[in-house]
Each structure stands twice: as C-alpha cells, then as structure tokens.
Nucleic acid binder design. Structure first.
Length: 434
RNA sequence: CGGGGUGUAGCUCAGUAUGGUUAGAGUACCUGGUUUGGGACCAGGGGGCCGAAGGUUCGAGUCCUUUCACCCCGACCA
C-alpha cells in the first residue's frame, strides 16, 4: 500500500471523552471512529487488524477440530422464549420488529440458535462430539457503553458450542479449548491469565475466564505467586459489596491490599487488573434439555446433549493489545497484529535518490509477500515519524539524510531504537527481523 | 432507569450571565513560497441551517417550550 493512496486519517487530537490509551490511539491512529454510543466504524487499518486477529482465532480453532458456521444476526424472539432468556437477559437484548410486527432479537450470544441448528441433525452418539463456532457480530445493549472497543454495544465475538455424549468428553473438550485459547492469546503476543470465574447469565457449572493483564482492566483478579492458579474475585467473596469495593480500587491501590485467603498450593495471592477476552463454560444439559435437543446413545435411548460453550471477544482484543502495548507516542502492535510489518519512510520525496530507493525496496518486499506500506507523502521527517509511531508499524525503514553515506535506518517501534544499515544489507536485515 | 453535563467549522473549543452589524480561535484542508532528521514557517483562501422543531421579539448562537443525540456519576450487566 502507498500511503499517498491510502485512507488513514490520523490526527493529533483525541476525542474529549477518550480516557484509555487504546481508545485514544485507535481513534487518533485512524483505526476506528465512533458512529454512535458503543458503535464503531472500522477504517482500513482497523479492519486489517481485526481480520488478522480473526484469522489467528480461526486457524487455531480449526487446528483443534472446531468447525466454522454462521448464524443470522437477527433471531426470532421465539428462540429466546423457549429457553426463558427472553425474560432473564432483559434489556441487554435489543429487540426489533419486522414489517409484520413480529419480534426479533439482535443476537447477544447464540446458545439457543446453535442448539436448534444441531437438534435433529446430529442424531447419534456416533456423530459426537462436535464443536461448532462462528465469528460474528453481537449486540448487547449496554446501559453505559464506554472505553472505545472495550465496552461497545455492537462487537465482534467468536462464539463456539460443543456437543457431547458424556460428561467426561465434555470436560476433555473444555480442557482442549483452554489449551487452544492459550495458544491464541500467546500468538497474539498478550500477557494473560486463566482464572476461575462465575458463570453469570450464561449459566452452567465450571467456567474459566481469560484475562489480558492491564491496569485499566475492569475486572479484579487474584493470581497465585507460586502456582498458575488464578481467580476472578467474584468467585472468592459471597458479598457483592466487597467485590465492588475491590473492583473500584485501582491497580496501584490494590498492591497494598492483603488477602487472607491462601491458594490451595499454599502460596499467596496478589491482585491484578484484567480485561476479559475469553470465557469458557461447561454447560451440561442446561440448553439441550430446555430446548429438547437429544441424540440416541449406544442403547438407542434418547439423551440430552451435554454442552460446553466458548467465547472470545475479537474486537475487544484489538483494544487489549494496545492497552498492553503502547507508549506516550502511540500504538505498539505485536508482530501478529501490526497493520503492516514494514513502513518504508522516504524522508524527503523530492530527493529522487531517496524516493527511488523507497520504490525499489517497496517492490522487493512486496515480491516477497511482506506486508509493507510506502510512506510516499510530501510530509516532513518529523511528521512522518510521529505518524509512524502513532500508528505503530512494527518496523520503519527510514530513508533519509544518511543515504548520502549509503545508509538507512531501521526503526524498531517496540524498542524505539534506530539501527543504521548499509543500503545493500537492508533487505536481508529486514527478512531476518520478521 | 435515577442524577448531572454538553451539543457552535472535519477535530479540540471560545462566544450564551446582560439578545443587536457579516459568528470566532487553534488545528485540519486548498493555493503559492521558503523549508526538509522529530507533527516547521510566511502569505492568501475555502469551509457553519450555532443538534432539531416550535415559540417570544423589530431582531435569537444567546431567552422560553418540546425533542433528539452524545458524555459523566450511580443502578444494571460481561
């Protein structure tokens, strides 16, 4: 992509209501912009990052044997009446009417729909287990959307549902998904913890959350200093007000707090703040029973499916990456999430030697299928650097004043170091880096 | 849902207590020039139904009523 032809509206100023770094930088860097409360446009760079994360999620799930489908975003209210969630989920569900005045719901999640899809199609234990997922738009009518992509109303979520003939098999899949989720978040370059969690509105027995550690996180979790056990504090205290009291404290305030509870292994807990990016539940027959979804077991007897459900907040992950990876100047994308790996910056495009080299490197890198953008705009050096830092390209090749000595610089966004490289060695150096 | 706040240029905001020529600044944008290693400078220029509707008035960005949107605190909720 040529920067001169791209649509990347960056700006010096953030919206006045953006408090979090991810919100400010994603808007300033031209990744997203707000369309309404909790509603966001994805501009080209935001769309690229979103697709990258989607692909990683898809790749790892497919490797683990999950199968992708797609359900409608608009679902008939009758689906929700059957399970009782039309009442229990309340105003979170946005209801709409069609021209015949029939009631519909914009999907906040899809347990019912997926059970209906599998019901009477998967009929035998021989066809189990099966794990179906989709990566699709969800809508939850949050009372107070805020923090940019972290608490939007419309968002992109991966939701998966597995169906089993036995409890043991369900638990096996649960563990497989825990391992798969760990692979996904590791690939994304995130520092995260898996913690015991409450099952909340979805219901069911066992449940684990995946939290990206960030001081701005809305959840308070405790992690053991010795083993890898962790828990959302919601699971530790009975008393709601006590949970609230902890949640309201900042990360800094929590560091001075001590907790009487000890870990099963004997270790002490410490507090962390987390952004929930994944949640997996053992459901059992909660939905299959209420929706009367059954299969035939070895004896030909009808049994309700045993289910588990698995969610990943895909659009929330974009913001999570930045909450965890930024500095005062902007975004620092990880290698797997950067909108372009290489930014070729021609300091002065009027200098034909500089722009010729830029064009040459651009052509060579594209020939090697490297994700590259050529900054061929008329701006000055300082402007282009600030812009590159704000957007957060992993590496920037600076073609500038050192070219007269046959050298260019490679700027590493993460370390913010510039290394001089001989023009003849740039390509090999870059290929080593990525 | 309760309480509060804000809507004026693409963005960030003055102007509204006390109504009075043609509605402002910074930034962004366009033109020309000077610059060319950290969001540069000079000159010129375009851009507004002052959120919407109604009302009061000779006259409304400013006063009144209604309404919509967005934001903040709380409640609720992943």
């Amino acid at each position: 992509m040529r920067r001169s032809k791209a649509f990347i509206p960056t700006s010096k100023e953030a919206p006045s209501d953006a408090i979090l770094a991810s919100h400010q930088f994603l808007v300033r860097g031209g990744f997203i912009n707000q369309q309404g409360a909790g509603l966001y446009n994805y501009l080209p760079l935001g769309k690229i990052v979103l697709e990258k994360i989607k692909n990683i999620v898809k790749e790892e799930l497919d490797k683990a044997g999950c199968i992708e489908v797609q359900l409608p975003f608009v679902t008939p209210i009758s689906l929700w009446d059957k399970s009782g969630r039309a009442d229990t989920m309340g105003k979170e569900m946005l209801r709409v009417q069609d021209r015949h005045d029939k009631d519909f719901v914009l999907s906040p999640t899809n347990e019912e729909a997926m059970v209906e899809l599998v019901k009477n199609r998967v009929k035998s234990y021989k066809n189990l287990p099966i794990n179906l997922y989709q990566i699709n738009t969800k809508f939850r009518d949050e009372a107070r959307p805020r923090y940019g992509l972290l608490r939007a109303r419309e968002f992109l979520m991966k939701d998966g549902y597995s169906f089993h003939a036995s409890l043991e098999d369900m638990q096996r899949e649960f563990e497989l998904m825990e391992a798969t989720y760990k692979k996904i978040f590791t690939r994304l370059g995130l520092d995260f913890r898996v913690v015991d969690a409450d099952s909340g509105a979805i219901g069911g027995s066992g449940s684990k959350e995946f939290h990206v550690l960030a001081n701005s996180g809305e959840d308070t979790i405790i992690v053991c200093n010795v083993c890898d056990y962790g828990a959302n504090i919601e699971t530790i205290f009975e008393d709601e007000s006590k949970i609230e009291a902890y949640n309201e404290k900042s990360y800094e305030q929590l560091q001075s707090q001590t907790l009487d509870v000890k870990c099963k292994c004997g270790g002490d807990f410490s507090f962390k703040k987390g952004i929930e990016v994944g949640h997996i539940f053992e459901l059992g027959d909660k939905y299959s029973a209420s929706l009367d979804a059954k299969f035939s077991d070895e004896n030909g007897k009808p049994q309700a499916f045993l289910m588990a459900t698995f969610g990943i907040g895909v659009s929330r992950l974009i913001a999570s990456v930045i909450e965890q990876n930024h500095d005062d100047n902007g975004c620092i994308w990880t290698k797997e999430t950067t909108p372009y790996l290489i930014n070729i910056m021609v300091s002065n495009i009027k200098d034909s030697e500089q722009s010729d080299l830029g064009e040459k490197l651009y052509t060579q890198l594209r020939a090697k299928n490297v994700e590259v953008i050529l900054d061929d705009t008329k701006e000055r050096f300082g402007f282009k650097m600030k812009d590159a830092e704000l957007i957060g390209f992993a590496y920037t090749i600076i073609i500038g004043k050192e070219l007269v000595n046959g050298e260019v610089q490679i700027y590493d966004r993460k370390t913010t170091e510039k290394v001089s490289v001989n023009v003849d060695d740039v390509m090999s150096k870059i290929m080593d880096l990525i």
